[in-house]
């Protein structure tokens, strides 16, 4: 049984058909890529999967459960984590607080009572977990900096760390490398691979950087004008002439 199964998702905005009957599967622990030209509908698909948008047609199953009527936070609790192309960081909060909040959310803390009896202050364990993630992502120096002052690339890393701390079964990343330079992108690729390998997290990666995609993903979906153009093992898909024409734009 696939971890995530999206069945014929359709979404339109007024006259624009952003997604037309899209199918997508992710197996547990798999590293899958999703590529497509600008405006292909990749972000829209993510939004439909997490419940930010309601698809006009189609259904999403995750760990065997139908997500259609589930609100966003419940889907997240079930094990869907994601980062955003247009940042959704908690402005005004420090990096450490981002991680702390994610950690507490995963452990289903949040009762008023706990706060009143003084359990609100971060414990040493919580700090340790936040620092571990900070170290993994190279954010150690920035832990106590308000997120608003970070560069775009670093803010993306904060979103990644926040998602990782919720220990998702499936991590959906929307163009994590934009805002990073070459070296940082490769570093990011390494981090993602280690997250996948060590925690067994499945990853669904939207990315324009084909080098990174071919480096980390084992399977690839190609989306164009809201329709799934191709899927299969990454090297073969990338080599396919139709895909090259549609996505890369030049047929060598």
């Amino acid at each position: 049984m696939p971890l995530l199964a999206a069945e014929s998702i359709s979404k339109h905005f007024g006259g624009i058909a952003a997604l037309v009957g899209v199918d997508l599967n992710v197996e547990p622990g798999e590293f899958v890529g999703l590529v497509g030209p600008n405006g292909a509908g990749k972000t829209t698909l993510f939004n439909c999967l997490l419940g930010i948008l309601k698809p006009n047609r189609g259904r999403v199953f995750f760990r065997g459960r139908d997500l259609s009527r589930m609100p966003m936070h419940a889907r997240a609790r079930l094990g869907l984590g994601r980062t955003f192309q247009r940042l959704e960081v908690f402005s005004g909060m420090t990096v450490r607080d981002h991680f702390l909040v994610a950690d507490r959310s995963r452990r289903k803390k949040g009762g008023l009572f706990g706060d009143l009896v003084g359990q609100g202050t971060p414990t040493r364990r919580e700090d340790a977990r936040a620092e571990a993630v900070g170290e993994l992502l190279g954010l150690t120096e920035l832990l106590d900096v308000p997120v608003d002052s970070l560069s775009l690339g670093h803010a993306r890393l904060v979103e990644l760390g926040r998602a990782v701390l919720t220990e998702p079964k499936l991590l959906m990343l929307d163009e994590p490398s934009s805002g990073l330079d070459r070296v940082e992108t490769m570093e990011m690729a390494r981090v993602l691979q280690s997250v996948q390998a060590e925690r067994g997290t499945a990853i669904l990666l939207v990315e324009h950087d084909l080098e990174m995609v071919s480096l980390v993903t084992s399977r690839l979906y190609v989306l164009e004008f809201g329709e799934m153009l191709a899927t299969g093992p990454t090297p073969q898909v990338l080599a396919h002439p139709v895909v090259r024409r549609a996505y890369v734009g030049d047929v060598a």
Partner: peptide, 16 residues
């Protein structure tokens, strides 16, 4: 605080 910063972001990590 998190919700004020970004409601979508907060929901995406499971905060209701």
């Amino acid at each position: 605080d998190a919700i004020r910063g970004s409601e979508t972001g907060a929901a995406s990590i499971g905060i209701n």
